[in-house]
Design a protein around this nucleic acid. Structure first.
Lengths: 345, 345
DNA sequence: CTGTTAGCGCTTTCAC
DNA sequence: GTGAAAGCGCTAACAG
């Protein structure tokens, strides 16, 4: 069942069939509908390869996701939701999503070649280092690229990230509203953009409330659990320990809560904790972890929208960044009496 | 830079280039190497669409993953690792991985059409219901299909799953070794294969030790956290509560541990708990959750191997199932004195 | 509005 | 061992 067969049975030419199926304006509504009806009555599906070959567009979006990047996979607790959003959006656009293999780091056009090979419409990047020659090579080309949680520059690129600053500020604001004045933070590796921004938001909100932030109240972590536990212990060992801690990632935050509890402190009684990310475990713990949630699903849909935008726009536009709102999820780790929550807003 | 250009520069015909690049035996080793060297010197990448169109094989494996299936995504905590394994294996085979859109449930050849459209080499199914007409239609066709964690039958299908029975038995054996005699279980929905098998393994191992299993010691859950908490409360309210519980999924197990603690019981002091899956949170909790780990990465690699096997085999072979070993990860939730672990094996 | 036709870039007989 | 040539199934000029 190919386009010729369809044309024959429909009593029209293949050109007309093609036009009807692609919704071209030149075809009359009557024949368009007739052909379309016939097509799905016969279960016709256009061959994607033939279509791509002839039109020089595959309708495929490549996902560049470096699974080797740091400790191999578990560091993107949200990948799954991003992927779902991406997939749904891509399909809604009538496109397909293909997972790209990893190109050698040092080959500046490993990915460019892959993109050409599949005639990709665009590429979505996540969990990659934009400075790697292979990635930089891709970004500097004319192919639409959208990076997640990563600021990139390039003739046809954009990025989407969460409002890390705003999320951190909301966390601090919440802690201040709970009556805390001695608020510390455990940061992520501040060479990573999200970590740097969360830290900046933390400082800014603290300043807005004229609260001090001694150096000893800032402990660097690495987003992994162990560093969170260690950081919390260091904070609680201070002569004047904080009464609240904003931890820049949930894995660290959870470990921090448990380290505190293990050392005999009560959470939130002695020390309140707020995390960032809203990973699954945050809701499974007791006390539940108050945390800043990101809209992972929207990452995907936004990325696909940007890709389409980039494809249409002139090639040399300034790189755009879309910032997605975050939401504070209040659980027990930061609220003395959960029930008071609603009573005293 | 296409095959013609390459042929011209190499002073040979396109046919020879094609043969050289595809490692065909007819071409002389000398020209083969020469052409290949030239190809990657010039950064030539064969156009995937043209290749697929001419050869009727795309080198693409489709991933059928129903993101709508029950509560939308979070129920596959291990998807990410499976995906990484899948991707790596697929790429090693020189293939690509494409995420298939969801076809309407009631269309028996929605997926068949998709597969034809992309000229797929095969399809990997995960998190889908094999009874859905659309999925059943795909399975009954001649396209190689491999299902994960799902027993499927079809002229060219196979499945891969974890040794759920063995894992459950290992869990029970461990509890018995810890001195427990009153061992209960919280099951998953036993209409799902993994849940049924874990339950079967539980019973079998209990029987092997001549331990009783009263009906009240078997509580049905649904793999979600809430059901785990409820089940645990029911067990602990029994006149003679169990001293150990095997919970068929980590999300339930974690909630069970916390419910017990919240009600004033000590884990593992009063009741030991062993879960299944080894999700991230299992290691983040205190006490850490003893659990049965699956080799998710290997799911992917095994699936790809099976796909290749199916493509080569005669179309009507009996459907094969590969069972992957599981591993018990002992943490604090099942061991009275963690340090004794090594001392008293 | 519709049909004819020339490719898209590759693989694959079939000759040599 | 190599080359010539005929498609693979579709899109996109170009005519009409």
């Amino acid at each position: 069942m190919d386009i010729n067969e369809l044309a024959r049975r429909g009593g029209v030419s293949v050109a007309t069939v093609s036009r009807a199926l692609n919704g071209r304006p030149e075809v009359s509504p009557a024949t368009r509908d007739r052909i379309r009806a016939l097509a799905d009555e016969l279960g016709y599906a256009p061959n994607a390869s033939a279509r791509a070959l002839a039109s020089r567009r595959s309708g495929l979006v490549g996902l560049l996701w470096d699974t080797d990047y740091r400790s191999g996979g578990r560091q993107h607790p949200f990948l799954q939701e991003v992927l779902v959003g991406l997939k749904e959006a891509v399909n809604e656009h009538g496109q397909g999503l293909i997972l790209l293999p990893i190109a050698p780091d040092d080959d500046p056009d490993g990915y460019v070649r892959l993109a050409r090979q599949y005639t990709l419409d665009g590429v979505v990047l996540m969990g990659v280092d934009e400075c790697t020659p292979s990635v930089a090579g891709l970004l500097s080309g004319a192919l639409p690229c959208v990076a997640l949680d990563l600021a990139v520059g390039g003739p046809r690129s954009a990025s989407v990230s969460s409002d890390n600053v705003g999320g951190a500020r909301a966390a601090v604001r919440h802690l201040v509203a709970q009556g805390h004045r001695r608020i510390a933070t455990v940061t992520g590796p501040t060479d990573l953009k999200p970590a740097a921004e969360r830290y900046a938001g933390f400082r800014r909100e603290l300043a807005r409330h004229h609260l001090p932030c001694p150096d000893s109240y800032v402990v660097a972590g690495d987003f992994y659990a162990d560093s969170g536990a260690a950081a919390m212990r260091r904070l609680l060992a201070l002569p004047e320990p904080p009464t609240a801690v904003f931890v820049a990632g949930d894995a660290m935050a959870i470990a921090a809560v448990q380290a505190a509890q293990q050392d005999g402190w009560s959470v939130p009684g002695d020390v309140a904790v707020v995390g960032f990310d809203d990973i699954d475990a945050a809701g499974l713990l007791r006390p539940g972890l108050t945390t800043v949630a990101q809209d992972y699903h929207r990452f995907g849909t936004t990325a696909v929208g940007l890709l389409a935008e980039l494809a249409a726009a002139p090639p040399d536009r300034a790189s755009r960044t879309v910032v997605l709102p975050t939401a504070l999820v209040v659980r027990a780790s930061s609220v003395r009496t959960p029930l008071e929550e609603e009573a005293t807003p």
